[in-house]
Amino acid sequence: MNIKNISKKFLPIILAFTLIIASPSTLALGEVEQPQQMEQAEQQEYNVKEALTFLENLIKFVKLNYAYEVTEEQLVEGAIKGALSVLDGYSSYYTENEFKELNETLSGEFGGIGVHITEKDGYILVVSPIKGTPGFKAGILPEDLIVTVDDVDIKGFTTQKAASLIRGEPGTTVKLGIRRNGEDKLLYFNLTRAIIEINPVEYEILKNNIGYIKITEFNDHALENVIKVLGEFDNNKVKKVIFDLRNNPGGGLNEVLNILRFLIPEGPLVHIRDANENIRTYNSYLDAPKYKLAVLVNGGSASASEIFAGAVQDRGVGTIIGTKTFGKGTVQTVLTLVNGGGLKLTTAEYLTPNKNPVNNVGIEPDIIVENTTEEDLQLKKAIKILKEQ
């Protein structure tokens, strides 16, 4: 398949993101708590203060008596992370540097050189450079091994750790030492970092004038690029479209909802239930659907991908094909903290248009198709179904 990439970007994404923040509960005007309730509240406050005093003393004790170097800042950060660790697996505390990386992932933009990398046999392997970026222009090639960054040997580094060294502020420079097949000596590249935008959308017009759109994540650039593709489909009179959401881990709530509003007629797209059991419904306002749809999913399709598949399935505007989805049906709110760090907290659960739960359940496809290592049977099934419509 000759996939076109409509812009110079791609990066996998991990986390769901939204700006829905539950309102704090308040007392109604004139409502008065009973004395017994007040005593209980005071007792609870006292216990919290007592626990915090204990924690403060514990940190001081560890700082004075621990056999190795540790700072109070490290211990406090560890305590905060520990507090969040008792919640679900999607709520986390981020230090300032970690929060910066999270925001780059969510936005789909970062300062870097524009190469996809992975780990292989203890080395960092270039999968491919992104067209038009500093890495591409400098002549970095697929299968190059990055062995040093600014003269630091990175053998054994994880992809994330290596990426943190290669990325940086646009306009700054980074020196890469690269081992290339057929070259006896290391090749050195001095590159000036630039803003790299991650395009999560790939597309193609298949035989029988069937459109194919693969969305790798719902980052901040998903909507704009899907709109461009649908515009090209309209120019070519494409009326049947396959959306490939396999191994798409999710992304922004607004991104997926605004894409669905081009595909699903007027009515509910998803219901969000907050911590106070309040339900908010997000709707489409489209007069009539323009496309016949097939959606490919698998066990790696999560969060926003499940909102997409659930809306298409419940509203009856397409066929879901593949294997059962991941089952991540919660919404996270991302907050910036005064210390420069951040908090990602699960604040709500979402339900499909028919108010079916997704969390720890997943979405069962309309047609179950397992892929083989040799053939993409799921894609073949989607093409067959749309051809017959």
Score class of each variant (00 low, 15 high):
N225A: 10
G168P: 07
N225C: 11
I227A: 11
N208I: 05
E197R: 15
Y212S: 01
L176A: 06
S164I: 00
N199D: 13
K175T: 10
E183F: 08
K228V: 01
R167T: 06
F218T: 04
I166F: 12
N209V: 06
F218A: 03
K185P: 00
Y188L: 01
E224L: 15
E169L: 00
R179T: 04
E224V: 15
E204S: 05
I198P: 00
L176R: 00
R179G: 01
A163E: 09
Y203A: 03
T216S: 13
V229C: 03
G182E: 04
E224H: 12
T192R: 12
E197A: 08
L191T: 04
D220T: 07
I198N: 12
Y212E: 02
K228S: 05
A222K: 07
K214D: 08
V174K: 04
N219G: 01
Y203I: 02
K228L: 11
N199S: 12
R167H: 11
T216G: 15
I178V: 15
I166E: 07
G171L: 13
D184Q: 11
R193G: 06
Y203Q: 02
K185L: 14
G171M: 10
K214I: 06
L165N: 03
E169D: 05
I195H: 12
E169H: 01
R180V: 08
G177K: 04
Q160E: 15
I198L: 10
T192D: 12
K207Y: 13
K214W: 03
K214L: 11
V229G: 02
N209K: 12
Y188A: 02
N190K: 14
L186K: 13
L176I: 04
E197L: 15
A194R: 11
E224N: 15
I166G: 04
E197G: 10
R179A: 12
E183C: 02
K214H: 09
T192P: 14
K214P: 01
S164W: 00
V174D: 06
N190P: 06
N181S: 03
T192H: 10
K185R: 10
A163G: 03
V174Y: 07
L223D: 01
R193K: 14
K207W: 06
